[in-house]
């Protein structure tokens, strides 16, 4: 089993290779295999050309990739990643995602990710468990989880030359569950977004209404999460809060 903690735990005063070597020794990887494994893993995470650079010169994304490689040093069957992209910029995050996808495709490794980013879970995971206050609230594939909630695709639209009873007419459309007008922007909740848009277009043509803008937003895992856990804020003082001493080592 390999574990990558949430915090960046690679040693900034050591090089990438030295960090890998320390962990290889801690995991008891035989001396003869160490060099090749480290070379291959650093190559996999695209850090081979930085192998002798001190980790303190690395970006957050590079450190995370190094730590993922480090977590694989002993060829585990299961890899736990605790919030692997927390604190990373969008480019680094995408990079880490690509790496995790490549790992998944390349090996038989089971990867378990904990994350607060629902889009991350949606992009990376085959199965998602939603845990609320330590209790498993839902467990399924992303698509099935989305289908499991009373479903709403939301169509947003703005119209010109709409008649006075336009909202009432929209409510009669097939697949539409509710319609609200917020400052001229009409929100149409539907259990089948594409079908609702087709019906909407037919209606606007027949009534001579001009469509200025239209968009459809599918159900997201954020909606799923909120559905299963509720809207209450989860504020809690964290035990053993970490002290920031990074400035002392700059």
């Amino acid at each position: 089993m390999g574990v990558i903690p949430q915090a960046l735990t690679s040693d900034p005063e050591l090089t990438a290779v030295e960090n890998m070597e320390v962990h290889a020794k801690l995991y008891g990887v035989p001396r003869q295999k160490r060099g090749q494994i480290i070379h291959d893993l650093l190559s996999d995470v695209d850090l081979l050309k930085f192998k002798d650079a001190l980790v303190r010169t690395f970006s957050g994304g590079m450190r995370r990739r190094l730590e993922i490689a480090r977590g694989l040093i002993h060829s585990p069957k299961i890899l736990f990643l605790d919030e692997p992209t927390t604190g990373l910029d969008p480019v680094s995050r995408t990079n880490v995602w690509q790496m995790i996808r490549a790992l998944r495709e390349k090996s038989e490794l089971t990867i378990l990710i904990t994350t607060h980013y629902m889009d991350e879970a949606d992009k990376l995971c085959d199965r998602i468990a939603i845990v609320d206050h330590g209790i498993l609230a839902a467990l399924d594939s992303p698509a099935r989880l989305k289908d499991s909630i009373p479903g709403t695709d939301t169509v947003e639209a703005e119209f010109e030359k709409a008649p006075a009873d336009w909202i009432a007419q929209l409510q009669t459309l097939a697949h539409v569950t509710s319609v609200t007008d917020r400052d001229g922007v009409v929100h149409i909740a539907s259990n089948d977004g594409p079908a609702a848009i087709a019906a909407l277009m037919d209606l606007t043509r027949s009534r001579g209404v001009v469509v200025r803008r239209v968009s459809v937003q599918s159900t997201t895992l954020d909606d799923v999460f909120v559905h299963y856990t509720g809207n209450d804020l989860r504020d809690a003082a964290k035990e053993g809060a970490r002290y920031d001493v990074g400035h002392l080592y700059r």
Binding site: P5, A7, L8, Y249
Partner: peptide, 17 residues
């Protein structure tokens, strides 16, 4: 203590040491 505060020990504690 600085290593502990920077989370470096966490990296070792996830190994079988």
């Amino acid at each position: 203590i600085d290593d502990k505060a920077r989370g470096l020990h966490e990296g070792y504690l996830v190994t079988p040491i």
